[in-house]
Amino acid sequence: MSQKQIILFLLKLCAFLVFIGRAYQFYFFGAPFRSVFWDEALLTPIVEGLSNYSWYDYATNLNVSTWITNFTNLCSFLLVTSAFTCLFWNRISSNTFKKSVASVSLFILIFLGICMVKDFSYGVIQFLELSIQIAICLIFFLNNDISKINEKQLTFWLKIAVAFTFIAHGIFAMGIFYLPGHFIDMTIKILGVSETQAKLFLHIAGILDVLFSILLFVPKLAKYVLIYFITWGILTALARLVSGFNPDFILKSFHNYTYLVIYRLPHGLIPLTIFYLISNTKTIKTLKNEN
């Protein structure tokens, strides 16, 4: 495979992983959509203004709960459709179909981000953590033929997405606003350290995430920084399964944690894509100079 083909393959693979992983999550474990659909302050004027229901009637209505569940399952089905559509993107001739699929997927991911911000009260940092996943969707939304994409622009915007994602990771790891408990638990289980040591490790990792996110935009250092992001992105994705794996419940362990790995693998694969993009650009420049 040429570098160009590898880049296209990685983009399609990343889209597939994000969508199929999220689809699995939605279907088996749900999505935080209730943080919006059951937001009294937000929806009371709408519910009481457009229907005969009081907020209490709406919030306690089993049909509403069933509707939210069905909506979540529908999103799961749509994301599965998106996953396979992106995997065979250039083989699908209907641009209207592709644009529709990408639009729906983009809406679902953005809505997911909004719900996560509300559900976990992490503020905009929680949304920034989804930057790579949303960026992948945007690539397909904006390009009917990804083989003709402008590589220079793609490299720049993917760098932005990677930087936002890892800055968010770093801020969480440093505990600037809040240190997620599962970060500490994973570190303790995998490294076998104490809670204090785990917090120190995460703090150092957080500093590196933020520092390297800045250095990513220094051309001479970009390749070395990307090696860090490739390694760290894949390791942090695999950490979900490794920390939660129970040899006594193998199938349940895979069921509960593999989807977390799947939709996070692009956190390492997108930096790998950028690595190939930079290498491909340098190769093209070299060939032009030789001619």
Rank of each mutant, 00 (worst) to 15 (best):
Q197H: 04
L241S: 02
T273C: 01
K99P: 04
L87D: 05
L142S: 06
M186D: 00
W67K: 10
T236G: 07
K199Q: 09
V18Y: 04
Y257Q: 12
G206D: 12
S100N: 00
F71Y: 08
S94M: 00
L235G: 04
S105M: 03
P32C: 13
S35Q: 07
F140S: 03
T81S: 01
E48H: 09
I6Q: 14
I171M: 03
L241V: 05
N143K: 05
C14A: 09
P45N: 11
N246K: 11
E40C: 11
S2T: 14
T283I: 15
D185V: 11
I204S: 12
T155M: 04
N70P: 07
L179K: 05
F16M: 12
I92H: 02
N150D: 14
I125C: 02
K285H: 12
F177Q: 00
N143R: 01
P32Y: 02
N291C: 04
V104D: 00
T85Y: 01
L226F: 12
I234Q: 11
L8I: 09
V80R: 05
I92V: 07
W157N: 08
N280K: 15
L238C: 05
Q197T: 08
V124P: 02
I214D: 08
F254V: 07
F217E: 10
I46V: 12
L208H: 06
L138E: 07
L106V: 00
I136A: 00
S194R: 05
S243A: 14
I136S: 01
L200C: 08
F172A: 13
F177P: 00
L87P: 07
L17M: 15
M1G: 11
Y24G: 04
W67Y: 14
S51L: 09
S54R: 10
S253E: 07
F29A: 00
T96L: 13
Y122I: 13
K98N: 05
Y276K: 11
L211A: 15
N291M: 01
N143L: 07
A205D: 14
F37T: 05
L17I: 14
R22G: 13
G170P: 01
T69W: 09
Y122P: 06
